[in-house]
């Protein structure tokens, strides 16, 4: 059986990288006594496929992983809740399972399928420059938003506007739906952004670069980005964005 699991990554643990998380999963599955199918070859690896990498320093409620269970273990669908509990216990502090379901072999892989993700970002208001609310308005009213990015060692000026699918200030209802300890520690202007992940994709730090005034030397986006939390990952189905785990459409709910 293949399972699709979503999990949170909150607090101190957000400073670990994508490779670190892969190692944590391998160890946590073994600690939980969950037998994973192994690849064949000289160095058999557990069959796990991770979703999009979460930038080091960013938090999430909806990280994704597909795991192929060892067929010999005979796990059935009604045991998935217990598997989720065992995994949450075994994962490090700050990580726990937020959703689990069986995943058909025909489903498109996470890496290929996910087209956009939704972020909550707490951005410090810049000194002296236009405030974040005005910057959001400017971006929304522009057909073109240029950002200098490096590709193969060369600087390119990219128009990232088409990749910014939604951008607005977060309302109180949304903020109150977030984990209490997350929002309690954080300051800054809360924004919601739906950013494309297809092609080059747009990182939250890149969005910050276009929201705060340019400076020389260039800004470090992390000086402005106090916290950033991924709350949804989307795939496209029949021209509509739907949640990759639950299949719910974009307008029904934002948090998993």
């Amino acid at each position: 059986m293949k399972i699709r699991v979503s999990y949170s990554k909150l607090g101190k643990i957000r400073f670990t990288g994508h490779r670190d998380v892969a190692h944590m999963w391998e160890r946590s599955l073994r600690k939980a006594g969950i037998a994973v199918a192994m690849s064949v070859g000289f160095t058999p690896r557990p069959k796990m496929a991770f979703g999009l990498a979460l930038p080091t320093g960013a938090e999430s409620l909806v990280e994704l992983i597909d795991i192929t269970l060892d067929p010999a273990s005979g796990v059935t669908a009604d045991q998935l809740d217990s598997i989720a509990d065992r995994l949450s216990t075994s994962l490090p502090v700050g990580m726990s399972v937020t959703g689990i379901r069986e995943c058909a072999g025909t489903e498109v892989s996470l890496q290929e399928g996910v087209v956009a993700t939704t972020w909550i970002m707490l951005v410090a208001e810049p000194d002296g420059g236009p405030d974040i609310a005005s910057a959001i308005e400017r971006v929304n009213n522009s057909a073109e938003v240029l950002l200098s990015r490096e590709r193969k060692g060369e600087k390119h000026l990219d128009n990232i506007r088409p990749g910014i699918l939604e951008l607005r200030s977060a309302d109180a209802e949304l903020m109150s739906s977030l984990p209490a300890d997350w929002i309690g520690e954080s300051v800054g202007h809360a924004i919601v952004a739906v950013l494309t992940t297809s092609g080059r994709g747009i990182r939250p730090t890149e969005l910050v670069e276009v929201l705060v005034p340019e400076s020389d030397p260039p800004i470090n986006p992390w000086d402005h980005l106090n916290r950033v939390l991924r709350i949804n990952q989307w795939i496209e189905r029949d021209g509509e964005r739907v949640d990759v785990l639950t299949g719910r459409a974009a307008h029904t709910s934002v948090s998993a």
């Binding site: 101190k12 400073f15 670990t16 670190d20 080091t56 320093g57 502090v93 700050g94 992390w222 106090n226």
Partner: peptide
Amino acid sequence: EPLLARVRKPARYIGC
């Protein structure tokens, strides 16, 4: 905390 996203390998400093 505000410094860690700006340094290399911040997981060195978090314990956990």
